[in-house]
Amino acid sequence: MSIVPDRLPLGEEPPSLADERETVRELCRSLGDLVRGPAGRATRVVMAAGSVRVEVEWPVGEAGSVVPSGEGNALEAEPTGEVLRAEMVGTFYVAAEPGARPFAAVGDVVAQGQQVGIVEAMKLMNAVVAPCAGTVTEVLAADGQAVEYDQPLLVIAPAEQEE
């Protein structure tokens, strides 16, 4: 599953930036509902923001039916989970320093409280930590990207799903 914002929210040219950002936000919300909805877990989600494009793919032959949890492709069929959002305006970093191994990449299993990124604001490095144990299913912000308050950064599928 990948969500690909193809435009950055900060520093972009007008005129429709505010509208577009709202569109992205709305898309993220709707996608969350969609992939958790009765249609079952999606195997692939593509989202574009510039001209607004959404693609959702469900397992072939299972469309419309509820896919029991635990089935399907282990990597691709993870449901959308906890969305980590920026708690402040700043610059997002995936690693402690340029070239270093990222704190967390898609597919990594993380523990609750484990650092998964950094938002730098006023030269202070603010750790972004996992709110729960689980698997990183998406990294939504690029390394070095300026992020605003409440902007989605990563998605973690919780390790223990309620049946």
Partner: peptide, 30 residues
Amino acid sequence: ADVAVQIGPPPARRSYLFAPALVEAALATG
């Protein structure tokens, strides 16, 4: 505006009164 940056939640002390967010927004947008 040409560019808008969301800097915090409704309470002013965490948005319009929060200097680090304002400065970061200024630097990020040039």
